[in-house]
Design a binder for these strands. Sequence first.
RNA 1: GGGCCCGUAGCUCAGCUGGUUAGAGCGCACGGCUGAUAACCGUGAGGUCGAUGGUUCGAAUCCAUCCGGGCCCA
Length: 935
Amino acid sequence: MADKPDFKQTMNLPQTDFPMRAGLSEREPHMLRLWDEMDIYKRSLDVNAGGPTFILHDGPPYANGHIHMGTAFNKVFKDLVVKYKTMRGYQAPYVPGWDCHGQPIEHQVERNLGPERMKTISRTELRALCREYALEFVDVQRAEFQRLGVRGDFGDPYLTLNHEYEAGNVRIFKTMYDRGMIHKGAKPIHWCVRCKTALAEAEIEYSDELSDSIYVKFEFTSRPEAFAQVSEPVSVVIWTTTPWTLPANVAVTLAEKADYVGVRVGGDVLVMAEALVTSVAAAAGWVGYEVLPQRVKGSELAGLKYRQPVHDGVEGVIITGEHVELTTGSGAVHTAPGHGEEDYLVGRRFGLPMPMPVDDEGRFDAGGGPFAGMQVWEANPTIIEWLRERGTLVAAGTISHSYPHCWRCKRPVIFRATEQWFVSMDEAAQGVRPLREGAMDAIGKVEWIPGWSVNRMSAMVGDRPDWCISRQRAWGVPIPVFTCRTCGETVANDSTFDAVIALWEVEGADSWFIREPSEYLPAGTACPRCGGTDLKAEQDILDVWWESGVSHTSVLEARPELRRPADMYLEGSDQHRGWFQSGLLTSVGAYDEPPFRSVLTHGFIVDGEGRKMSKSLGNVVSPIDVVAKSGADIIRLWACSADYSQDVSVSGEILDRTSEAYRRIRNTFRFLLSNLYDYDPADAVPFDEMYELDRYAMVSLADLVDRVTAAYDEWRFHMVYRHLYDYCVVDLSSFYLDVLKDRLYADEAAGHGRRSAQTVLAAMLGAMVRLVAPVLTFTSEEIWLSMPEALREGAASVQLSGWPTVDVPAADAARLRAAYATVLAAREEVTKALELARSAGVVGKSQEARVVLVAPQDTITVLRERGGRELADMFIVSEVVLVVGEAPASAPAAVTVEPAAGSKCPRCWNHRTDIGADAACPDLCGRCARVVSAL
RNA sequence: GGGCCCGUAGCUCAGCUGGUUAGAGCGCACGGCUGAUAACCGUGAGGUCGAUGGUUCGAAUCCAUCCGGGCCCA
C-alpha cells in the first residue's frame, strides 16, 4: 500500500504538559511549598495595599484532637471567602485562632497523669501540662488546616493562652464590672463530696443507682378554699428520691393546668394530682381511701402556704411550673432551689430563697436542723425515720434510676448551690442599658446569613438566664478580682483591674497563681468595707465561652491588620449558643455594639442518610483520609457544591460524584490549555472581528462571570459551583469546544479563524481559572502555572491576579443570545435525528451526515443568517439544507438525515464535495489543500 | 418537652410572591467516536415533590397534624 501522507503532522493538534490525571494527593504538597516560598499570605495583603479591608474573624476551634469533617468544612469556607475577597481587591487578612483553655484539656491531662500523680501535682504544674497539651494540638491542627489549602497567618495565629489575649479578658471584665453587669450569686452545680470539687457536665457519668423513693405530706397552713369544709387536716403530698434535700425545701411546684384532688385516708386529706392518685395509693398501700369530689387546678392552689417539713415554724409556698410531670410522683414537686437546676430556675422566677445547708464535704451545717453535722448520704435513712415518727411520711420504698456519678471516684454526686459569678442580662448600673436590651438591639443591626439565623439568635438572647461565667477549675483565665481576707468583701476597681492587665500582659495568667496580690497591686489597695489590705486572688476561672467571646478585643482590637467590628463571623449553627453569643454579649456589654457586621452560619456535616456522624454508627468520614486518597481540592469542591444553609451530607458516593465533577472541570481546563500552546495575546482578535460563534461564546462567558460573581456576593457558593460546572459541561464541552475542534485543528495555525477561536479560549481560561480559584485552590494554581506566561499578566499566583471582567457590547449580546437560542434549539432536534439515523445504520459519526431541516419561516431566517457553512459546523455535520415548512407541534423543527454528499477528506475527516479541487493536493478538501499548500 | 431548621429523581441542586404534562447536570442503560483518549459526543429510562388532612377553581409551593433527620436547650 502506498504511503499515505501523514496529515496529522500538518494539523494543530492539542499540546500540553498539564496532566489529565490530577494526582492531587501528591501534587498538592508541592504547591504548598511553592506558596510558602513566595510568602503567599503576605503577598495577598500587599497586592491590595491601600484598598478596602474585609475582616473575616476566625472562630477558634478547640485545641484538642485532630480536625474532623466539620472543622475542615468550616475552614475551607472561610478560606473561600477570604480568597474571593482578596481577588475582588480587598485586603483580607486571615488570622487563625485556637481555643486553648478549658475543661476538656484539663480533663484529658488529668486522665493521662492518673490519680496518683494527680494528687502530687500543683496547680501551676497542672497548668503547664495543659499548656503543653494544647500547643501540641495547635500544631497538629495547624498542619491539617494548611494541608487543606487554607491561607492565613499560620506563623502567628492567636491563641487564647497568649499573654495579650489573657489580658484582653480583663479589659472586658473591667468595663462590664464598672457598668454593673457582673455580680456574684449562687447557683447549683454538680458537686462531688468525696473529691470536694465542682464537676462539669462532661465529667459526669450516668449509671443506675438504687435510691430511696418517699412520699411526704406537707400540711397546709392556709387551707385551700375547695377543702374548707373538710374536718381533717389537709396536706399536699410530694415525692422525692433525695430525702436529704428536704431541709432545703422552700416550695412545692404544681402543674398549672392539671387537676388536683383531695384523698381522704387515715384521718387526713391529702392533695395530689388526680392522674396520680392510683399510683400513690399503690405505693402507700392504701386499702381504703376516698377521693373527694372537689377538683382544683394547680394554678388555684398557687400562693398557699404549708409547714416546712423539717424546720418548725417555717412555711413554704405553693407555686406552679412547667417542668412538673404527671407520669411519676404525685404531681407536686418538692422544690429546693439550692439542689436542682429546675428548682433553681423556678426559684429565681418566683424570687424564692435558696437555702444551702450542705458544705463542701456534703455535711449539713446548722441549716440542716435536726440533721446538722450528718453527711447527706448517711442522713437519708435518719430523715426517713424521723419523718415516719412525725407522721408525715406517706410511703417509703426504693427506686432504681439513672443517677449522675463522679468520673474520678465513681461515687454519686450531689447538686449543690455554690457561689458563682454572673453576667446580668437585665440589670446594670444607673444609666447603663441592660445587656439583654442592648444585645437584642444589636442583633437587629447585623446581617444574618441565612435569614433564619436571626430568629435563632433572638430567641436565645431573649430567653436566656443570666450567664454564669465562673468555673471551679484550674485550666483557664482567673476571674480578675480579689477578696478581703478579713471580711470577705470583693475588692475590684479600675486600679486593680489595670494592675492585673499590666501583670498578665507580661507574665500571663499563670502569675495569678504564683504571685501574691500585694506584689502587683498598687500600694494601698484596700478593702472598701473594712479597710483590710490582706487580699486573696479569686480562685475561680472564667467560662471558656467568655474567653473566646472577647476575641473582638484580644484579637481584633489588638492586631494592627484587623479591626473591630469584623465584617464577618462564619461558623456552624451550634455557635448561636456559643461564640456568636459570647462575642455578642461581651461586645455589647463593653461597647454597646455587635462585634460583627455579618454572621454566616452553616449546617452540620451528616452522612448520606442525613444522620450525624458517629463512631458507633460507623459512618465517620475523615477529612484526613479524603485528603490522602483524593486530595484537598476534592474536599473543597464538595464543600462548595453543597447548600450550607442546611445540614451537609458526605459519603463515599457523594465524594465519588465530586471527584467525577472535578475531573470534568479539570479536563475542560486541560482542553483550553492544550489549544493555546502557540497563542500569544498579541494575536488576539478584536471582538468585532471575531467569528460570530466566537462572539456568542464571549457573551456566554460574560454571562457566566456575572452569574458566578453574583453567587459569590450572595454567599450562595453552591451556585458558584453549579454555574461553573454546567458551563463546562453544557456550554463548552458539548457545544462550543466540540464545534471548535475542526477550526482549531485543521485551519491554518495563524489564520484568522483559529486566532479568533484562541482569543476566546484565552479569555475563557483567564476568567474561569479566576472564578474557580477560591474553591479549587490547588488546581487553579496548577492551571495558572501551566498557562502561557503572557496570559498570566505578571501575577505570580492566580490568587494575586484579581477578578475577571468580560466586556461585550450590550446590544450585540442581546442579539446573539436570541439568535443562538434558536440555533441551539434546532441543534437539539438535529442531534436527536442523528441518533435515530445512527441506530438505523444510515450514518456513524455526525460528519457523515447531511441534514434537512424543516421549520417555520422565522426560524429558518434566523438559521440562514448564521451562514450555511457555519451552521453545518455548529451541528458538526457536512451539510445543512434549510426548508421553510410546518414543524411538528412538539418540536421547533423537523429534521431528516441522509448520508453526506462527496467523500471524506483524509485530513479533516469532513465529507466534502470539493476533494481534489486543488490539483496540488488531490486527496484533500479545498480548505485543507489551501492550508497544507501554505505550509 | 421547648427554640431554630431541613426532607423535590441513585447523587448534588433549580423550581420567585400558589397557575399549563416538576427542570438541570452527574450517575445509570444503550449507542457513537478513537486528533480532549483511564478522555470526548449523543439518545434514553428514572420523581405519587417525606405522609396525611385542610384552604383554594388550582399547591412541590399556604395552613395543621404526623413521620424522619440535624443543631441548641431541658
